[in-house]
């Protein structure tokens, strides 16, 4: 599923637009502890988190995730928004919880399979 399709299917808000909207999302990782995320995240993952500081952007950049998805409507801090824009990191958000996002994603992936 591409980022554009994902944004559409889950009605996500775009905080920082993806530099390549047609990038394929391969897998999902959920977590807020940065050093665990750092070791588990793979390139092209969708990373669901409620962390909002610039360190999220650094981890996303270093792991080559396809996008960061902020759950529960948390707002990225201004520093982090600038860092994401400067580095071309896609940041999306939703009022749904991490569980609801994963559940909806599983439905979509199943329907597309």
């Amino acid at each position: 599923m591409t980022l554009t399709e994902l944004i559409d299917a889950l009605s996500l808000h775009v905080v920082c637009p993806p530099s390549s909207p047609e990038r394929e999302v391969r897998n999902v990782y959920v977590g807020d502890l940065l050093s665990r995320a750092m070791s588990r995240l793979q390139a092209d993952d969708l990373w669901i988190t409620i962390m909002t500081n610039t360190n999220v952007v650094a981890v996303a950049e270093l792991t080559d995730v396809a996008a960061v998805l902020l759950a529960e409507d948390v707002a990225l801090l201004p520093d982090a928004v600038h860092a994401a824009q400067d580095n071309g990191i896609a940041v999306l958000s939703s009022e749904k919880s991490a569980f609801e996002l994963c559940r909806d994603m599983a439905h979509i992936l199943k329907a597309n399979a």
């Binding site: 807020d32 502890l33 940065l34 050093s35 665990r36 750092m38 962390m51 500081n53 360190n55 999220v56």
Partner: peptide, 9 residues
């Protein structure tokens, strides 16, 4: 609170 401290570094 920033997301550090998992003891995994």
């Amino acid at each position: 609170a920033l997301g550090f401290g998992a003891g995994m570094g």
